[in-house]
């Protein structure tokens, strides 16, 4: 299964992902119309600044997710195959149990209604909107094996470079 991975060294903190996320989750899916919609379209991922680094935070869709465990009404469910954690707003009662257990702080609140809001990994799209919007490819959508291979290639390049310098 493909996951969203973050290459922290590439994030410049441009917030494009946040904007794309909000637009994708609007009714019109168009930035100009989205800004005047009610409920106001909201982002489900967050770019934070920690230790002089820019870090995009988004739901990790954890295995046996704590938020799903904590949910008392069945609003949060996890697909056993894709491991995507989906939130059903009709069942949500805004008790914030999921918010309180989430270790990454990525379950937010809808603006108008007192219910939770989280990443659904863009069900209608082949590539999630945030990934597509990222100009520096800090966000990538791929299989874990592929991501690890990418990192290995980068490391190999470094090693090769040093060999070249050493002659």
């Amino acid at each position: 299964m493909k996951e969203i991975f973050v290459r922290l060294d590439r994030c410049v903190g441009c917030h494009s992902c946040e904007l794309a996320c909000a637009v994708e989750h609007s009714r019109s899916k168009n930035i100009f119309e989205a800004i005047s919609e009610t409920p106001r379209p909201r982002r489900r991922l967050y770019v934070e600044y920690v230790m002089a680094r820019k870090m995009p935070f988004l739901c990790r869709h954890c295995e046996d997710a704590p938020c799903v465990r904590a949910c008392r009404t069945g609003a949060l469910t996890q697909d056993p195959l894709t491991r995507i954690v989906t939130h059903n707003p009709d069942k949500c009662i805004g008790c914030w149990m999921c918010t309180m257990v989430c270790p990454y702080g990525v379950i937010g609140r809808e603006w108008e209604r007192r219910i939770a809001l989280k990443c659904d990994r863009c069900p209608g799209r082949e590539i999630p909107a945030c990934v597509e919007a990222c100009p520096t490819k800090a966000l990538v959508f791929m299989e874990q094996e592929e991501f690890a291979r990418l990192t290995r290639l980068e490391a190999a390049e470094e090693v090769a470079k040093s060999y070249r310098i050493a002659g």
Binding site: Y46, E48, M55, G105, V106
Partner: peptide, 14 residues
Amino acid sequence: FSHRKRGIAGLSWA
């Protein structure tokens, strides 16, 4: 609340 949590998670990540 979530912003603070992200700060803590971000620290170990960083």
